[in-house]
């Protein structure tokens, strides 16, 4: 038996394709997959939300409310009522019984909880300087109810968690990657929700006072501290400056007037 040594130049065991082109394909595929999942989830969640009666929402609202140390505020309720009175009779918001709470938290925020519950943080109240601004904030939250955003994001969040766990398994490097990608889609969606609520708020504010004065004041105060726009790519809210610009565009298109704002009345004004 003769031995003939041969050195092969061609390596059959390693694929010839370039790793960067593979990366492109895989990342493209991932974005497509995640996008599709998100659309399907969104449609299902929206459908489920539209079928959920307000009663169940109210029950969920009670559960959610337990998470916040908040007291019902008569002063805020007083300001919410005239806004509610401006709503058209066939508005879906008529089904809710709104309750408004004040929470002693330094955070500058207000949230819409299921079942018509609004929680305003005291940190936000300190930033507010006029009645019109406060009305804008409250009308913005009403906008979330009108679009049922609070329920939708709840449904979507739940769906996302279940989908990633089912599809990719938990505690797996791939699932972490996929859920991160899903999350960035969620952020886009959330920013769109905020802008829609802003617009709803602006329309309601104008109906209440007859002019759109004070609509952007609160955001311009926020914009001063907000800094650069880049981090907002990944935030749940759009950059305040962008919100102001969107509002101003809407004011111009609708030919709303801007008149002088009313200062905040004493019962809510900051003690000097």
């Amino acid at each position: 038996m003769k031995f003939t040594p041969i050195q092969l130049e061609d390596n059959i065991n390693v694929s010839k394709s370039h790793p960067l082109s593979e990366l492109l394909w895989l990342v493209g595929g991932l974005i497509l997959l995640v996008g599709l999942t998100f659309i399907v989830l969104g449609v299902t969640a929206d459908w489920a939300v539209s079928k959920t009666p307000v009663k169940i929402e109210t029950w969920m609202g009670k559960l959610a409310l337990n998470q916040f140390p908040a007291t019902e505020s008569a002063a805020l309720q007083q300001r919410l009522q005239p806004l509610l009175d401006q709503l058209p009779l066939d508005s879906p918001l008529r089904q809710y019984r709104f309750r408004i709470f004040l929470s002693e938290t330094p955070e500058v925020n207000a949230i819409a909880l299921p079942g018509g519950n609004i929680v305003v943080f005291s940190g936000l109240l300190q930033q507010v300087k006029s009645e019109n601004e406060l009305a804008m904030v409250l009308a913005h939250e009403l906008g979330h109810f009108a679009h049922r955003d609070h329920m939708r994001s709840l449904g979507r969040g739940l769906g996302l968690a279940v989908a990633t766990a089912l599809l990719f398994g938990e505690n797996n490097a791939a699932s972490e990657l996929a859920s991160k990608a899903l999350l960035s889609f969620q952020v886009r969606y959330s920013q769109a929700q905020e802008s829609a609520a802003d617009q709803f708020g602006l329309d309601l504010l104008t109906k209440r006072y007859g002019h759109a004065g004070g609509a952007t004041d609160f955001f311009s105060r926020l914009a001063k501290d907000a800094g650069n726009k880049l981090p907002y790519i990944l935030a749940s809210h759009p950059h305040p400056q962008d919100r102001i610009e969107a509002l101003q565009r809407h004011i111009k298109n609708q030919h709303y007037h801007l008149k002088k704002t009313l200062p905040l009345e004493e019962d809510l004004a900051e003690p000097q």
Binding site: S15, P19, E22, L23, L26, G29, L33, A173, A174, A178
Partner: peptide
């Protein structure tokens, strides 16, 4: 990273071949 991504779609894990 390529292998992790490949795990989602299935197929030849080219990056591990070499």
């Amino acid at each position: 990273l390529l292998a992790i991504l490949r795990n989602i779609f299935g197929g030849r894990v080219k990056s591990y071949e070499s």
